[in-house]
């Protein structure tokens, strides 16, 4: 029982981690607290589901299409709406309020757009992963294993990209100081687009991974946004390793709480942890020094 719950919690935690990674990446790189990030997750899931059921593509190809499609959508949204607003400052500043409100508006708009395209009935995302893995008492559906593998692979790729490629270096330089990055000859607007696109693709990946477990529906972005924020804050807002660790903590806590206490209050456990961390260590588990900006 305990092992089952921890393993499933770990998988769900990876989903939260992917969303939180995107939120942290956007915050540390662009000074935007992105409130429409849940809708990127929702659109990723819908694009994946549509491609999978309509075109009969293999699940891995579905993945690629959903990631690219959502990244492109994110890039357009950032370019057209957020960038004008960030010119006046972002983050927690007064000017940043405009961006937050714009994000909420964008979330509503995207939900309604999805309503028009896909209608509000939950849709199945029927992927057959084969039989569950059974070792003694442990029962582990393969879909959860698939989530862990894909999520870890994406995190490793992101880490290598940011730490060991020239583009990654340019993104880190841009995140730290846009003027200095400009003066080193870095194409800062391109790096901003790239960062936003990558963050949205991570959310889409989470959406495509969760799709086969839950149904895909247009309101799925709302709760994941809050869980993603909880994960990001628990880990230390803006810290990339923190986002992943925060996601796993929230996921495992939720799973254990649902298993041992009560499944009805599943969504509460994430916030209990969030409140506890904010009381004990408000900067999150990973201090600011470890974040992308350093």
């Amino acid at each position: 029982m305990l092992v089952d719950l921890v393993m499933i919690g770990l998988s769900i935690g990876m989903i939260y981690g992917l969303v939180a990674l995107g939120i942290s990446l956007i915050y540390s790189g662009l000074d935007i607290v992105h409130f429409a990030h849940g809708e990127m997750y929702m659109f990723g899931a819908f694009i994946g589901m549509t491609v999978y059921t309509q075109l009969n593509l293999l699940y891995p190809f579905t993945f690629v299409v959903a990631l690219l499609g959502t990244a492109l959508m994110g890039i357009v949204i950032e370019r057209v709406f957020y960038r004008r607003l960030t010119a006046g400052g972002g983050g927690y500043t007064v000017a940043g309020m405009g961006i937050i409100i714009c994000g909420f508006g964008m979330a509503l708009f995207l939900q309604n757009l999805a309503y028009v395209i896909w209608d509000p009935t939950p849709k199945p995302f029927p992927v057959d992963f084969g039989r569950a893995i059974v070792i003694g008492d442990i029962y582990y559906p393969r879909v959860y294993l698939w989530i862990v593998i894909m999520a870890v692979a994406l995190m490793v790729v992101l880490n290598v990209f940011l730490r060991h490629t020239k583009l990654g270096l340019a993104i880190r330089a841009m995140a730290r100081n846009k003027d200095i990055a400009f003066l080193m000859g870095i194409n800062v607007p391109l790096m901003i687009s790239l960062t936003f696109g990558v963050a949205c693709a991570l959310a889409a990946a989470a959406g495509v991974l969760i799709g086969p477990i839950n149904h895909v529906e247009i309101y799925m972005g709302y709760l994941i946004l809050i869980k993603g924020f909880a994960a990001a804050v628990v880990g230390g807002f803006g810290s990339l390793p923190g986002a992943v660790v925060g996601g796993v903590i929230v996921g495992v806590a939720e799973s254990l709480g649902a298993g041992y206490l009560s499944g009805n209050y599943k969504d509460i456990y994430a916030f209990l942890i969030l409140i506890f961390v904010l009381m004990v260590r408000p900067s999150g588990l990973f201090s600011v020094e470890t974040k992308l900006k350093a």
């Binding site: 400009f182 003066l183 080193m184 000859g185 800062v188």
Partner: peptide, 8 residues
């Protein structure tokens, strides 16, 4: 011109 162009 954009700063990165001027650097180049």
């Amino acid at each position: 011109l954009r700063p990165d162009r001027i650097v180049r």
